[in-house]
Design a protein around this nucleic acid. Structure first.
Lengths: 168, 168
DNA sequence: ACCTGAACACCGTTCAAGT
DNA sequence: ACCTGAACACCGTTCAAGT
């Protein structure tokens, strides 16, 4: 709050005229960037492609606000609105997951990407800044999102005996 | 610090006689519980079983110190010692991953489990406390760890053409 | 060695007041 | 409507001092 105020060359209390408290301010910041990606939806593309794009969008959006990702993981309620949660579960049900697995799958995907964002935020890395062995932050996310998708594919296959509708 | 002191019915400054600062105290707490799980090693068992046990151990250990997991994700340097990092990479190389993928795989597994711990910490959940639809915190981790492993299996298979040594 | 007391620099935030 | 000033309750921490 005080940092924001001094950035605006204003008294700390001036900020409170526009915003209820720190939480409110961060919620606004999140709402601003989260409008960049829509709700997760299965439109035409494979669920794998839709999920990949969605997760990468979240990561790219939050990577632009260093520290916000770290803050969000402390407030799981901000980014997981009831509608967002329902949309994610619906997405995985549409993709062929049973209801319980759909919820677990959505939680899994979000948990991973938020963990990644939080780690990146605290390591202070820009997406393309090189790290150990020349690996960039983006390489870690790309690998991670691929692994998330591959893992969910495997789990989905266990529950959906065959792509075509097998009776049992 | 002040909370610790009052818990011990002592002045805040008394704590500083035993500990350099807050960071030091938390590092000690982490060292205490991390001794419960050894370094990740491939001894006899399949890498899948070894990894599963390791990740679950981390989760169970940190779940007993609510808030510590949330704090650790802010300090990626505490829990990822050079030795721990090297051991993890070695583990995945032993499991048949190429060097770069081994590093990415290890980072991936740790990122997921820390994300999970952090979310659990902030939701204030005990491992067996029931959540939405009767799912317990443990169900989320079990699903997640299975998904992590399944994802890594798929990636490993891409790089290791067949279990038996194919020349190409 | 072990602990206290006063104080400092930093937060987020309330309350009353100014224009 | 927009902003300031003084103040409060809370941190982690330093410094000097007590036994």
């Amino acid at each position: 709050m005080r940092a924001v105020a001094s950035e605006l060359a204003v008294t700390p209390m001036a900020v409170y005229h526009y915003v209820d408290d720190k939480d409110h301010l961060l919620r606004l910041a999140y709402e601003d960037i989260s409008s960049a990606w829509g709700p997760l939806r299965l439109t035409g593309r494979s669920w794998e492609d839709a999920l990949r794009e969605h997760l990468i969008s979240i990561w790219e959006g939050l990577a632009r606000y260093p520290g916000l990702g770290a803050y969000l993981i402390e407030r799981p309620n901000i980014n997981v609105t009831p509608e967002g949660l329902a949309a994610g579960i619906q997405f995985f049900e549409d993709a062929g997951f049973p209801p319980v697995e759909a919820r677990l799958a959505w939680s899994y995907a979000l948990t991973y990407i938020h963990g990644r964002i939080s780690v990146d935020a605290h390591l202070g890395h820009r997406p393309e800044a090189p790290r150990l062995e020349g690996l960039r932050a983006r390489d870690y996310v790309t690998f991670g999102v691929d692994a998330v998708i591959a893992g969910l594919q495997a789990i989905r296959t266990q529950h959906a005996p065959e792509r075509a509708g097998a009776k049992t």
